[in-house]
């Protein structure tokens, strides 16, 4: 049997909202270590990797070595509309069961339950190498969200140029060119902090459609962390409630290759 209780149900709601437009169906891989999810978008340009450690849950039980729960994202996000912001959520599945039961509770006054039919999803697991990035940028999620949204008005691609001292986001579109520079700002109040760590400068082009899609996970944490290496996928990481110990939602995006 699998049973997990999360007092802050909105965390799961935000995770699903963050990935629902990228992936149609996903597998929840449950083990005694927690929940993992790995899925590609339908064009195989990006990859979502979720890790929820048991620390994020008030209660966590998985009797088998592993269980795979196939979820349709549209249905899950529909179910999570039932979940109020202050609700706790309990997920429960029998060992050979065909459903995942969600229970949303606020105190004992209001209890909602929905049994979701599980799907059999054929998914390929890719090996994500442990990468040390040449450039790491930590910036407020609201800033990331705003840059991606504003730049999408001018073009389809955005160049991220990370150098010592700061990071420049630029777009070159039909109506003209624009850029936004964020300075390395370690000594300001936490919510405005921008930390740019550079071993060697990196400049890469990415599709804004995907960068904007990842921004839907912004409510999950205050800061987002970008990892860049030459000619490798960009890593966009949201730590759950800004605590890596609880887990993270990571997106990887393949770069545009210059012709």
């Amino acid at each position: 049997m699998f049973e997990a209780v999360l007092s802050n149900g909105s965390t799961l709601k935000k995770i699903f909202e963050g990935i629902k437009d990228l992936c149609t169906d996903v597998n929840f891989d449950v083990s005694s270590e927690g929940i993992k999810l790995q899925a590609m978008d339908s064009s195989h340009v990006s990859l979502v990797s979720l890790e929820l450690h048991t620390d994020v849950f008030e209660q966590f039980r998985c009797d088998r070595d592993s269980m795979t729960l196939g979820l349709n994202m549209k249905s899950v996000t529909q179910i999570f509309k039932i979940c109020g912001n202050d609700d706790s959520v309990t997920m429960r599945a029998e060992d050979e069961g065909e459903t995942l039961e969600f229970t949303f509770e606020k105190g004992e006054d209001r209890v909602s339950t929905f049994e979701l039919k599980l799907m059999d999803i054929d998914s390929e697991h890719l090996g994500i190498p442990d990468t040390e990035y040449q450039c790491n940028v930590k910036l407020p999620c609201s800033e990331y969200q705003r840059i991606c949204r504003d730049m999408a008005g001018f073009g389809d691609n955005m160049t991220i140029d990370c150098q010592k001292g700061g990071v420049t986001f630029s777009v070159d579109g039909e109506v003209g060119k624009g850029k936004i520079f964020l300075k390395h700002q370690p000594n300001v109040e936490e919510k405005h902090k921008v930390i740019v760590t550079v071993k060697e400068g990196v400049e890469l082009d990415f599709a804004l459609r995907y960068l904007n899609n990842f921004a839907k996970a912004a409510p999950l944490s205050d800061h987002v962390q970008l990892g860049l290496n030459s000619d490798t996928p960009l890593s966009v990481r949201f730590d759950i409630e800004d605590k890596a110990t609880l887990g993270s939602l990571k997106f990887f995006l393949a770069p545009k290759i210059k012709e």
Partner: peptide
């Protein structure tokens, strides 16, 4: 704007 690479060309099967 360059050619979009596939994520599968970077992350192979484990």
């Amino acid at each position: 704007g360059g050619t979009q690479a596939s994520i599968m060309s970077f992350f192979g099967k484990p």
